[in-house]
């Protein structure tokens, strides 16, 4: 265990792998750099002194751009990525399979169905403010349905995944039907949402998402130990005194909640949840709290970088971050599959 240290203080005891946390710190530094770059770069180019001045006076024109446009949007992206990555990490543990992701359990499909339904049927009357709620609700409902369908005196990862895929296909069909029968403009805005974008994120969005994410993190604290044991066979886990079904249900609900809120504010950025945990595992082989932290940081960096790329690469266009998440994720994912197939 290399540089593992044990901290003991009365009854309190912890194993801390310093090297792992050092790597997390480095990753965090990189994330901060991306954040700064995201603040510095954009359509309105600012020189370094201008930028510093703007940073100090939030009231000025340039200050407004920084404080009211770029910062909340970047933070929103970071939070969305962090939540998706954490959700993906949890699900890959629980499903005992590195290919599991929030998509697999119908989270994204459920969120998409209700969000698109809201967009088509309700947005004209009540405005689009409640769309995150609809999406989060859809995500949670879908996962509950999947769990219910897979429950037969308990669930198994295989049954959960299959039910998730079945329900996803069904829900996508419903979404498609709604889209086919709605006007083209609505369809298009629905697609932008489906691709995933943090365009126009404001402070209230950031506040809400941060609060939800914070609650989820606190809820995760006592569960980390159990999440680390989740890859064990049911028999082994029961043998060492884990309440398998109870733990699995709790962890899945937590993961679904995380993905739900992320999708609610950031749209369906499918690949963060799949890829970020892999990158984290690549950087830190040993499962543990540090790996979770790493997944969160990597997820946040990925979405921030994707959002930045979307703003910078094709200047007049402000492309949705989800596009670049897919563009980064695809080669990585294909490489992974090739490696696994061997």
């Amino acid at each position: 265990m290399g540089e593992a240290r044990v901290l003991r203080l009365g009854r309190l005891s912890r194993v801390v792998v310093w090297r792992a946390w050092r790597r997390v710190a480095v990753a965090l530094l990189v994330a901060l750099l991306i954040l700064l770059a995201s603040l510095a770069l954009g359509e309105a180019a600012l020189s370094a002194p201008q930028w510093l001045a703007a940073l100090r006076s939030p009231g000025s024109g340039a200050g407004l751009i920084l404080w009211q446009l770029r910062l909340p949007r970047t933070l929103l992206g970071a939070l969305v990525g962090a939540a998706l990555a954490l959700s993906g990490w949890l699900l890959q543990q629980v499903m005992r399979n590195p290919l599991a992701s929030p998509d697999t359990l119908g989270v994204t499909a459920g969120a998409a169905t209700l969000a698109v339904g809201y967009l088509v049927f309700l947005a004209a009357d009540v405005g689009s403010a409640w769309m995150p709620l609809a999406a989060a609700l859809g995500a949670l409902l879908a996962v509950l349905l999947v769990m219910l369908a897979a429950w037969r005196g308990g669930t198994t990862p295989l049954r959960l995944v299959l039910m998730g895929i079945g329900l996803s296909t069904l829900l996508s069909a419903v979404t498609t039907f709604v889209l086919v029968s709605s006007p083209l403009t609505t369809t298009l805005s629905a697609y932008v949402w489906l691709t995933g974008s943090v365009y126009g994120g404001n402070w209230s969005d950031v506040g809400w998402l941060a609060a939800c994410f914070g609650v989820a993190l606190v809820a995760l604290m006592p569960l980390v130990r159990l999440a680390l044991l989740a890859p064990l066979d049911d028999g082994l886990a029961v043998g060492i005194g884990v309440r398998v079904q109870w733990t699995r249900t709790l962890l899945i609900l937590l993961a679904a909640g995380l993905a739900g809120i992320a999708v609610a504010w950031g749209g369906a950025m499918a690949f963060v949840g799949l890829v970020a945990p892999h990158v984290a595992r690549r950087l830190l082989r040993q499962p543990g709290a540090a790996q979770i932290a790493m997944a969160i940081v990597v997820g946040a960096s990925m979405t921030m970088a994707a959002d930045l790329a979307g703003r910078l690469l094709f200047p007049p266009l402000d492309l949705p971050a989800g596009l670049f998440v897919a563009a980064i994720g695809a080669p990585f994912f294909l490489g992974l599959m090739m490696k696994q197939a061997r």
């Binding site: 044990v6 003991r8 009854r11 309190l12 005891s13 912890r14 194993v15 604290m221 006592p222 130990r225 044991l229 060492i240 005194g241 884990v242």
Partner: peptide, 10 residues
């Protein structure tokens, strides 16, 4: 695991 708790992990 059965001898550990959230407080006392090792």
């Amino acid at each position: 695991h059965p001898h550990q708790s959230w407080l006392a992990q090792w």
